[in-house]
Write a protein that binds this DNA or RNA. Structure first.
Length: 639
DNA sequence: AGTGTTCACGCCCTCTGCTGGCATGTA
DNA sequence: ATACATGCCAGCAGAGGGCGTGAACACT
């Protein structure tokens, strides 16, 4: 690594402390329009206020790599640490053995295990901490019992320059908080010549998560350079440590390799040199292997055939993966926080984002951020309006294929299975809607729901609604002044006016008042609306006009036989049949009958009929019947 | 250097579930 | 006529499966 600024693809790492890394993060927009975390200000937990650092970690195959970006005066430096799991036996050896310079072994005790914790960072270090970066490792994500022994290797040496007498203090505490923070293990530490004076404070804090605070001293800007070779920090007497060897660094990216041939090959990835061209499509490739695989896609050559199904693949790796997915179901990548396991490491990494909440793929048009590139891409359709999926039957387009499939199923498919509510007779087309139904109607609610009509109370809405039906068709509104009863409260409101004498609907053109709006409307049309043309029913025999159909029909019985027809002025008129007039013995009963017809007269006319006086306006010169029903009034008003 | 294997990334898919607008029935 | 309740429906996002591909790695 040869730059002062390293662009670390966030997807390669797992966020380990959201509060520090994300909430104060600064976003950098990448080439793909995706904003990524580059750095963040120091948190209050940092012992040196001037220290900033983007810190990310990844867990490749059981190792935990921590990448610290420690900006100083506008610069950023990268320190890569790598942990290595050790056995307890290793740890015992480790406890007494002097550490090689450059090593930062950390022995972490499992909470309650009784084994003394130890973190060893090197020799000759002191507690002199000028800069630090806090690393928070959620215990669930990386359980202590799985990191009984950790070793930090300095993989990138871009942080240098502390004084020799600087020391590093390490304190450990159980995540449960049972260990006092004062119980610190002071461990001396140091590094190789190149990293002399670089020290770390690793400390675990009690709480829900283990917090490792790594502090460094006096970071310096690394030297810029081309692809360079430097001696790696060698470790000794350790398992899983790298031998002393030369490391070849790419000056363009973070790539390092122990072989110059690998670096040479790698450097071709930074060029567009692709000497191997496909003779079928002229597509070029860097290596002959890639070209051969590509040609196989043309020819359909898939030499690696699955023995358990008809699938075949270009490479053996694809076949092996396929077999794990489809046949062996081997899932070596297990989540430490839940039971999830996956065939591929990338899937576990993606899954862990559902625990950490990390959303590296930021929409540049809104606040949405996705956990993987596809979700961001799918989300972008909401901005572009793109609807790639079309129903082949009705041509309606959709943003997602799943939505279209549901559409086709529900709209264009017969015998679609439906979901029966287990608590009532409701059948719902979609399971998700059934869930809503259950939530709204069949979920117990602590708050009592009272019946509008009786003292009964319920805690399940469906039970209340069922109970309401028991009140149906019952004239539950009873007048306290007389024997009148009705089904609807609004009718009772009107009826009460017959006792109070209230007539709230006043004609704006004269001094008349009415108890109902409908009566006022009819009055206004008759006396004050010059454009109003009343309906006239003419006798087909004698031509006599009637304002109401039933009067004309009654007339016909004496005048002759035959069906009448309304005049042209009645065209389009509603022709509801009049309810049969039921003789009532009392005015109250008449009111009740009128109430049944959704109209209660303020006047006391028997039979529930409303007297309407059309005067001389009728064509036939006949006064309107006084026993006109509400339907007729409504029909007239409609006209 | 050649070649096979492993790893990582990316793409696309399906399934699932929540949300809110709309249509419709009911009071 | 109106308000309200509720199922229907499309939109949208979360989560995970499966596979194609290229680069790095490891072996010969």
């Amino acid at each position: 690594m040869a730059g002062t600024e390293i662009s670390v693809p966030p997807e390669q790492f797992t966020k380990i402390k959201e509060g520090v890394l994300i909430t104060e993060k600064a976003l950098e927009e990448g080439e793909d329009g995706v904003c990524r975390v580059r750095e963040h200000p120091s948190s209050e937990e940092l012992e040196a206020e001037s220290t900033h650092g983007a810190l990310q970690a990844k867990i490749p195959g059981g190792k935990l790599e921590l990448v610290l970006a420690i900006p100083e005066e506008g610069e950023k430096h990268i320190l890569t640490l790598q942990t290595a799991h050790l056995t307890s036996e290793d740890a015992e050896l480790q406890d007494l053995a002097p550490q090689h310079q450059g090593e930062v072994p950390v022995v972490v005790q499992q909470a309650g295990s009784g084994v003394q914790s130890l973190v060893r960072l090197g020799e000759g270090s002191q507690q002199s901490l000028h800069q630090c970066v806090t690393i928070s490792i959620q215990e669930e994500m990386y359980p202590l019992q799985e990191v009984e022994v950790m070793q930090f290797h300095v993989l990138e040496e871009n942080v240098t320059g502390a004084s020799e007498d600087s020391k590093c203090a390490v304190s450990l505490a159980e995540s449960s908080g049972s260990i006092k923070e004062e119980e610190q293990l002071l461990v001396e530490g140091g590094f190789s010549e190149e990293t002399e004076g670089q020290f770390f404070l690793v400390e675990a804090r009690p709480g829900d998560e283990i917090v490792l605070t790594i502090s460094t001293l006096n970071t310096e800007k690394p030297a810029l350079g081309q692809a360079h070779v430097e001696k790696a920090n060698a470790t000794k007497s350790r398992k899983k440590t790298k031998e002393v060897k030369r490391t070849f660094h790419c000056d363009i990216c973070m790539f390092t390799s122990s072989r110059i041939s690998s670096l040479t090959r790698h450097m071709k990835t930074h060029t567009n040199e692709k000497p191997h061209m496909c003779h079928l499509c002229l597509k070029a490739f860097r290596t002959v292997t890639l070209l051969r695989n590509h040609i196989n896609t043309h020819t359909g050559t898939r030499p690696y055939k699955c023995g358990d199904c008809d699938m075949a693949f270009v490479t053996s790796g694809e076949l092996a993966r396929h077999r794990r997915y489809k046949h062996t179901h081997e899932k070596p990548f297990k989540c430490s926080m839940c039971k999830y396991a996956s065939v591929e490491a990338s899937k576990l990494k993606r899954h862990i984002r559902s625990h950490t909440g990390e959303r590296p793929f930021q929409c540049c048009l809104c606040s949405y951020a996705g956990k993987d590139p596809y979700k961001l891409k799918r989300h972008m359709r909401t901005h572009s309006g793109e609807r790639p999926y079309e129903c082949h039957i009705c041509r309606v387009r959709f943003t997602q294929r799943g939505t279209m499939k549901i559409h086709i199923l529900q709209k264009h498919t017969e015998n679609v299975p439906k979901y029966q509510c287990p608590h009532c007779a409701t059948v719902i087309a979609r399971k998700s809607d059934l869930r809503v139904h259950l939530r709204n109607l069949h979920t117990y609610r602590a708050a009592e729901m009272k019946c509008h009509y009786c003292p009964a109370v319920f805690h399940v809405r469906h039970a209340l609604l069922q109970h309401h039906k028991t009140h149906k068709n019952e004239k539950r509104f009873k007048c306290e002044h007389c024997s009148y009863a009705c089904k609807q409260e609004r009718h009772m409101t009107v009826h009460i006016r017959t006792h109070t004498g209230e007539k709230p609907f006043a004609c704006p053109s004269c001094d008349r008042c009415f108890r109902q709006q409908q009566l006022l409307n009819v009055h206004f049309k008759k006396y004050h609306d010059t454009t109003f043309v009343p309906t006239v029913y003419k006798c087909p025999r004698c031509g006599k006009g009637f304002s109401r159909l039933n009067n004309m029909q009654r007339h016909l019985k004496t005048c002759g036989s035959g069906q009448e027809k309304p005049t042209t002025s009645e065209k389009g008129r509603r022709t509801k049949k009049r309810k049969p007039t039921i003789p009532k013995e009392t005015a109250k009963e008449a009111e009740a009958a009128a109430e049944e017809a959704s109209l209660v007269s303020g006047e006391q006319y028997p039979g529930g009929l409303v007297p309407i006086d059309f005067g001389e306006a009728t064509a036939g010169g006949e006064d309107l019947d006084e026993d006109m029903t509400c339907e007729m009034i409504l029909a007239m008003m409609e006209k």
